[in-house]
């Protein structure tokens, strides 16, 4: 008896005409069927990026209701090195992404392990833990801005009860970035939690049972089973979060507007200012292209590291 694979089966079910079997249609059909998607991808993704790159070599001004494009070569790219907002933005974004994502991963992992070991009311815990991610960004900004308010905020009222002086969470240069990071951790930890919990729940249970029969404790399970098996999930979650964290905008826009000074300026916000508020489309494009390049590089490096870790 010959067992056919599904492809072979479907091929066998087709009329055995030479034009179809192994013919032109077979060879080109995958390309033809994918063409609309590829075209859509090119139009929606590559074309805007190409336009951005072209814009970055121009100054765009408006006269008589018409745009005038003046070529400037690499001038915009050269000016980036001396832009105080861009430099501050790069530094703050790196700190923001590193600290926020690290804490979110640890907290998310801890909550996921905890929830996976709870047998009663697991759905309730899961629902509670994911609530922050369901709140729209604009509401989060308004809510935390009120909570952080120096004069009327609940946090200062609470610390006042224990005799502490009110703190200026969003207006003090030494506290502002940390305060924004706290909000981001609150907002995005559920994302890490959800992905890591899904990963945990899909781990093969027989491995755990065997380990327990052999007398392994929780820490041994964690070190020798959970972490190695969870590595692909952890890597993907980390990558997703890093990408989103590097693009942070709404929390900064709503809470601090990049201030005080440049203490919470982040790259996306600097691009927004230069591109939209100041209407410097050429210069803003150069900022976007450099940021895009940096992010792409980060993704490639992160994927390489993850691949290497999986191998070892």
């Amino acid at each position: 008896m010959t067992v056919l694979g599904s492809n072979e089966l479907s091929a066998a079910a087709l009329p055995a005409t030479p034009a179809i079997r192994g013919g032109l249609l077979d060879r080109f059909w995958p390309g033809v069927s994918l063409a609309p998607s590829i075209l859509l991808f090119l139009i929606l993704t590559l074309l805007p990026i190409a336009n951005l790159v072209v814009m970055s070599f121009h100054d765009i001004t408006w006269q008589q209701g018409r745009a005038t494009w003046t070529p400037v070569g690499l001038r915009h790219y050269a000016a980036l090195a001396n832009d105080p907002l861009f430099k501050a933005g790069i530094g703050n974004t790196a700190v923001f992404a590193t600290v926020a994502v690290a804490v979110q991963m640890l907290l998310g992992f801890f909550l996921a392990v905890l929830t996976s070991r709870v047998f009663h009311g697991r759905v309730i815990y899961r629902t509670i833990f994911v609530l922050p991610i369901l709140v729209p960004g604009i509401v989060i900004g308004a809510m935390w801005k009120l909570m952080y308010n120096f004069d009327f905020g609940i946090i200062n009222q609470a610390i006042g009860l224990v005799g502490m002086m009110p703190r200026d969470f969003l207006g003090d240069r030494s506290l502002a970035l940390a305060s924004v990071i706290v909000v981001d951790i609150w907002h995005w930890t559920p994302f890490c939690f959800l992905l890591l919990l899904a990963g945990l729940e899909s781990l093969p249970q027989d491995v755990f049972e065997a380990a327990r029969i052999d007398g392994a404790g929780f820490w041994q399970e964690l070190r020798h089973i959970i972490l190695p098996l969870m590595l692909p999930t952890i890597a993907v979650t980390l990558l997703f979060r890093l990408i989103v964290a590097f693009k942070v905008f709404d929390e900064v826009f709503l809470l601090t507007g990049g201030g005080p000074g440049t203490s919470t300026e982040v790259v996306s916000f600097s691009i927004y200012r230069r591109f939209f508020t100041e209407d410097r489309m050429g210069y803003g494009s150069a900022m976007s292209v450099v940021t895009l390049f940096g992010l792409a590089l980060l993704i490639i490096v992160a994927q390489g590291v993850a691949r290497q870790m999986r191998r070892t």
């Binding site: 105080p84 907002l85 207006g171 240069r173 201030g259 005080p260 000074g261 440049t262 200012r273 508020t277 100041e278 209407d279 410097r280």
Partner: peptide, 19 residues
């Protein structure tokens, strides 16, 4: 004006905050 105000907003705020 949009470019000028972006400059003054940053620099004046840095003066107010003591930076």
């Amino acid at each position: 004006g949009a470019q000028i105000v972006a400059i003054t907003e940053l620099r004046l705020n840095q003066a107010v905050t003591g930076e």
